[in-house]
Design a protein around this nucleic acid. Sequence first.
DNA 1: TATTGTATATTGTTTGACAATCTACAACGC
DNA 2: GCGTTGTAGATTGTCAAACAATATACAATA
Lengths: 244, 244
Amino acid sequence: MDTRPAYDSTIDLLRSQSLSSLVQREIERLILSGEISAGEKLTELGVAERLGVSRGPVREAFRGLAESGLVRMEKNRGVFVRTVAVEEADEGFAVREALEEMIGRALAESITEGELGELRALLVRMEKAAGQGSVDAYSELNFRFHDRLVALTGNGRLAGMYQQLVKELTLFRRQTLARSETLAVSLAEHREIVEKIASRDPMAAGRAMAAHVRASRERMHESRAIDAGEVDEERETQREEGST
Amino acid sequence: MDTRPAYDSTIDLLRSQSLSSLVQREIERLILSGEISAGEKLTELGVAERLGVSRGPVREAFRGLAESGLVRMEKNRGVFVRTVAVEEADEGFAVREALEEMIGRALAESITEGELGELRALLVRMEKAAGQGSVDAYSELNFRFHDRLVALTGNGRLAGMYQQLVKELTLFRRQTLARSETLAVSLAEHREIVEKIASRDPMAAGRAMAAHVRASRERMHESRAIDAGEVDEERETQREEGST
DNA sequence: TATTGTATATTGTTTGACAATCTACAACGC
DNA sequence: GCGTTGTAGATTGTCAAACAATATACAATA
């Protein structure tokens, strides 16, 4: 009865992964990609039918998502995709600043020439995307850049917390640097980061990372201010979120 | 706000909390208090009968606990209380160092005289406990001290991540500074922290916090080394963990 | 001794059931 | 008209029973 393309090799996957985990990951994907928007209510039956499973695994997935902060469960009312207020986003940015500073310091001491080359290759691609004003491509590379940095530290716990934070901030707004004017600025900051890491100066690298996060947060606030001005009568939760 | 013994008015609680949440919190308590020890296998039926509920809520609780990192789920094998290797604990300490540094910096800029008094009162009690060589009392106060610090930052996200980390480190070893000889050293570090925060020097306060975490990690390693020497033929997972 | 087979326990998932609660809406009284 | 009350329907929270799939322990076999 259920021959949809996306769920073909389900059998193989179920040999190693529980169905609940797959459901959880799928819902997470739907949320982070924006196919399910913030604030939206999720019904057990609705998700269960959409994915072709029963209520049980869906309930379990909900609990996992709630624990990771992507949804909010209200007893007898349902689960809602979490909405992140700007104040919460600021808190997240503050923590991220501390983590990125730590990443910068660590990498300045441990990075290899090969890894530096990898980062510089990413920079080249970011430069190209920025030159073309391609916000989507740049954002994707930007994400990859930071993800790679934290991975290079070799600290799994750090990477886990970092990604948890990024998910939340993604939830807040999927286009932090939506304006193509800011791409060049952002790119320069990334160059500075790589440069400081390459100089093997932990404090300088940490400062560059922290400064970048602070600047990102500022850009986020500016974007918000601009949007608020344009829309004027702003109804934040209902506004259409542009696709990426 | 919630000063009831524990299981007084279960009915009231169920009005606002789902049974799964309560089960999850109870299992978490059992784990962190050591009543369930690291590495132990938890069966759905066993926990369900122990708490007088059915398998469903227990499964959900397990998923929540797995997401928060306290248990590990292996498909078709069961859930196990997570064991934290020393390498993982080190990763945790590294992240905690970054977070505590952030806390120190923030508090140096925002703390009030009243809050400082509160911290100094805690220091007095810690001094007393250290003087009596009461490791248990000191550890408890130590925990309260740091918990209070992060709360004073007003950054909820930071507090959340911090507590998540502390839970994991608790899981690793419930007695980090088990040796009464180190209490005085630890106390001095805490005094230094309060002093630097009081001096309103963010960088100095951050450094004091970071240094304290590094020293704590060192003490943890020393304790381990001593234990290993005593036990010699060390079988880490089976060794008796001292109460508290 | 190593391998294979088998019994048992546990997990993973489904289904059905039902009480509790929320939500929306209609009926009612003022 | 407007606030209150009542009711119906939907959804959640929990339980229970069932069964396939898998893991584990142990016996049988080569």
